[in-house]
Amino acid sequence: MTLSKFDYYGPKTVAEAVGLLGEIGEGAKVMAGGTDVLVRIRHRMLKPRAVVGLKRIEGLNGISCGPKRGLSVGATALLADVAAHRGIRRLYPGIAEAALGTANVQVRNMATLAGNLCNASPAADNAPTLLALNAELTIQGPGGERKRPLEGFFKGPGVTDLAPEEVVTAIFVPPPAERSGTAYLHLSARGKHDCTAVGVGVMLAMAGRKCRDARIFISACGPTPLRAPQAEQMLIGQVPTDKRMAEAGVRASGEALPICDIRASADYRCRVLGVLTRRALQAARDRAAKKG
């Protein structure tokens, strides 16, 4: 099936893109990598009057990463580049894992981190770890720039807090907390290449032998990525033994809101989520320990 007809604009600056969105009005669609937008157009789930492509905006694909300045990923930076970035792999291994775990080689060579978030799939692989790490979005609109936490950005399947004339220009992740670790684990029907059926991203920060902070976010088990605050509370202030992590995993699966669909049954998702959460927590704890 061919794509439905639309006009195409390739603005050279973010301001131009925002201006175009205002001029075109209803029916304008922002596109970064296109791996979601074009599939939705092909499947007639989306029929934009105009596509505003971001790829010609210079400098928007930058990645900057350091232990003091944190991580900043531009809106058109490719998932393949996020996954392969040395600094990200060292400082934020969970983010690199999630990017590498998204779709397949070709899609990662086209798709972007920002696009994965703005598409707002409940199964978005890159959301849970970024949420666990307190990521922040930089958003440009007609009134100028605003920043907001990623947490609360997702409003439902395919729905975000973004206004029609706004563009996400970058994702910022604060410097990793001392003695902290992250991990992302997911499962899908076929290997790891199919759309995620269950995913979990965690951040664990230690103080002495005890857990100082924990953040647990689940994907594909609710209308948006979900936080598991009760499971987090079971860990904070405690020694994170394997047993406690297994218990937190069970609690997290109780906090999920999974449905039965083509990818997995609700029951399967709950059972697997407990195990994945335990494993992700263990991996994050071991990484935190390595940092001394």
Binding site: M1, G34, T35, L38, V39, Q106, N109, M110
Partner: peptide, 23 residues
């Protein structure tokens, strides 16, 4: 037509992409 099968793979600047999802 949806980036799953790879039959449409080409290289752009040396990187493999799905030509069916490239304008």
């Amino acid at each position: 037509g949806s980036g799953d099968c790879g039959a449409c793979t080409v290289l752009v600047e040396g990187r493999s992409v799905n030509s069916c999802l490239t304008l």
